[in-house]
């Protein structure tokens, strides 16, 4: 069995706010294999972005703090790395693509300059050579007239082009892990598929693993190898893409699935939104954090936190008291929708 590329163990990242301590990530563990596409899915505020930022130790300070846990990347604990070694890792071995490419690119520097910076910082290339490499990368991610575009500023790019440039910046040094935080959310629907395509092509080209963070299970389908569903800073369910799609065991995952709009949606199967809003991370509900919104909650759900337990022989796990019951299956609407697929 191959060794995992990244393994996160019992990660806890908390924020100090006016209202109290926000436990954005609270005891999350997972592993990413080399060249794997690992998806983290959840609503906003479920802790998926903070998980991603923690991997690069980029949690905004001083409010945010990684309280405990280990993040092992190729045998080194990132959280214990000295500052300069961490900087060498960032942008070189582990790279990140952010949600909104407009705000993620510095408005006062040209796109080419910002890509070239990666070569200059990590490889010590000269201005000219770095710029030439940047132009090549722009071409690689499908930006027309890259020579001219490299000299332009982010605001002169369209949303899709900006995200392509971000991807170019990310793959510049042939990384091992690409963290993509909602890479398509801020884009037009028509562009989203293109960007995913570019991202996956780059993964092929450079043999990188991808940590894909999204709130949209639809994006994940057919792309990810494994999926982790997060809720309120904790892991709700994790398994292979097929397992989570076809045999989800956590009512929250059911909710996520039924609330996806699909092209083949029929009028009679309505969208079933998950009722209520995500809980305040300062004051989590007792027991299972999902129980106030769960249609299947029983007394025990408000009393005990359900530990993650195996629900299949291949390693699927779920955090639900009833997940191991053989008759624990999704409601009819979901079954109907799935059958049509």
């Amino acid at each position: 069995m191959t060794k995992p590329l990244l393994s996160v163990r019992d990660l806890r990242t908390h924020f100090d706010t006016d209202e109290g301590v926000v436990k954005a990530v609270d005891g999350v563990s997972f592993e990413i294999m080399p060249t794997e596409v690992f998806a983290i899915v959840g609503e906003s505020g479920s802790g998926k972005t903070v998980t991603a930022l923690s991997v690069l130790n980029l949690v905004p300070k001083p409010a945010g703090k990684i309280v405990s846990g280990e993040i092992i990347f190729q045998d080194t604990n990132i959280l214990q790395l000295p500052k300069d070694e961490l900087q060498n890792l960032r942008g070189d071995r582990i790279v990140m693509i952010f949600q909104d490419p407009l705000t993620a690119l510095n408005p006062v520097f040209s796109v080419g300059h910002q890509i070239a910076e990666v070569y200059r910082a990590h490889r010590g290339l000269g201005k000219k050579e770095a710029h030439r490499n940047a132009v090549e990368l722009l071409e690689l991610v499908g930006i027309p007239r890259p020579d001219q575009r490299a000299r332009e500023y982010p605001h002169q790019f369209s949303g899709g082009m900006r995200q392509r440039a971000m991807i170019a910046m990310a793959v510049a040094l042939n990384p091992d892990l690409i963290i993509a935080d909602e890479p398509t959310t801020a884009l037009d629907v028509t562009i989203q598929a293109q960007i995913m395509e570019v991202l996956l092509r780059m993964r092929e080209e450079f043999d990188a693993a991808i940590m894909l963070i999204t709130h949209d299970l639809g994006v994940v389908a057919g792309v990810a190898d494994r999926v982790m569903v997060m809720y309120a800073g904790k892991v709700a369910e994790m398994g292979t893409c097929e397992e989570v799609y076809f045999h989800p065991r956590h009512p929250y995952t059911w909710g996520l699935m039924t609330s996806i709009t699909r092209a083949d949606q029929r009028k009679k199967d309505r969208l079933i939104p998950i009722r209520g809003t995500p809980p305040s991370l300062v004051n989590l509900p007792s027991g299972c954090p999902f129980h106030p919104r769960c249609d299947f909650a029983e007394k025990i759900c408000s009393e005990d936190y359900p530990d993650l337990r195996p629900v299949s022989s291949h390693g699927q796990i779920a955090s639900c008291h009833f997940a191991q019951r053989p008759d624990w299956t999704p409601p009819a609407e979901l079954v109907a929708g799935r059958a049509r697929r």
């Binding site: 209202e19 809003t277 809980p279 305040s280």
Partner: peptide, 11 residues
């Protein structure tokens, strides 16, 4: 308002 500020408090 709830869409903009989904947290219970702000609601």
């Amino acid at each position: 308002e709830a869409l903009l500020a989904p947290s219970e408090d702000e609601f």
